[in-house]
Simulated scan of single mutants.
Amino acid sequence: MPVQHSKASLHAFYADALRNGQSTGEKLRAPVPARFLTLLASLPADIPRRALDLGYGAGAYTIALAEAGFTVVAVDQAPAEPLLHRLSEYEDLAERVTVVESLIEQYPIREDFGAIVAKDVLHYLSQHDVEVLLAQAVQSSRSVNLHYLEVFTAISRTDAHGVQIHIEGEARYTPESFSRALERIYEGWDVTVRWDNHTEQDARSRRTYFEATRATVTAARRCPAPVGSAAMNGRKAA
């Protein structure tokens, strides 16, 4: 039977890692990949220059969005101090970022954000919370928007003895169930999903303790929503 870890223990682990600048399997302090910077550079000029970073972690994507000219709301239950300290090292960036310490599933999305980023965080939520959160983002969209998501599916975690580990309340999507959720939520948007296999290994023993299929999702609304309509009919899957 799998061992279940509480969300409280997960929060404590990441809070400690961020405060002490420690590395984690996700490499929280790694630079933003070039493909994301290319995506930012290709955004249309009329996109609203306000962004939401769900799950800011060490702040790499928050900083990239601010450097690209966005005013950013960064939301995470992780401690804000490490991100605020990091922002202070960049001239004029801190004034463009609002940091909100909150569970991301409890943050109400009621604003038309030009860009929304959620990297390596949604899989910790329940499927219900993931879909409510993304549906709020879609319903609040009134203009040209971009959502960039990296979501782990088909997750397998094991401890040093090979026993399966589950996180309390996590989504546990399969690629198929996550694809179906995207189809329901992003009706009328241009959606591209890239799938790749992801593994994490212990640095000393080289034991693989985490395996998953990662979905990198780019969902774009190309034209403003009609007046009085929260979404457009039809969907083009790229």
Rank of each mutant, 00 (worst) to 15 (best):
V72E: 04
H198Q: 13
I116D: 00
H166G: 04
V117F: 11
I47E: 09
P108Y: 11
L87K: 08
T199R: 14
R142S: 11
S156G: 06
Y186E: 02
S143N: 11
R86P: 06
R184N: 12
G69S: 07
K27I: 01
C223Y: 14
D53N: 05
K7A: 01
F113Y: 15
T216A: 13
A230F: 15
T158R: 12
L84Q: 12
T208L: 13
A219G: 05
A220C: 14
H5I: 05
F36L: 06
I116N: 00
N20R: 05
Q139K: 06
V121F: 01
H85L: 11
P79S: 04
A118N: 07
G57N: 05
P82K: 09
A68D: 09
V191N: 03
C223I: 14
L39C: 10
R19F: 00
R86Y: 08
R110G: 08
R206S: 15
V73F: 04
L93T: 10
R157I: 12
G57T: 05
A58L: 05
E105L: 08
A160R: 09
N20Y: 01
Y148N: 08
I167W: 08
R110M: 09
R207D: 15
L87H: 06
A137Y: 00
V191I: 14
L122G: 02
F36Q: 03
V217E: 05
L134V: 10
S9G: 00
Y148E: 06
Y14G: 01
A220D: 12
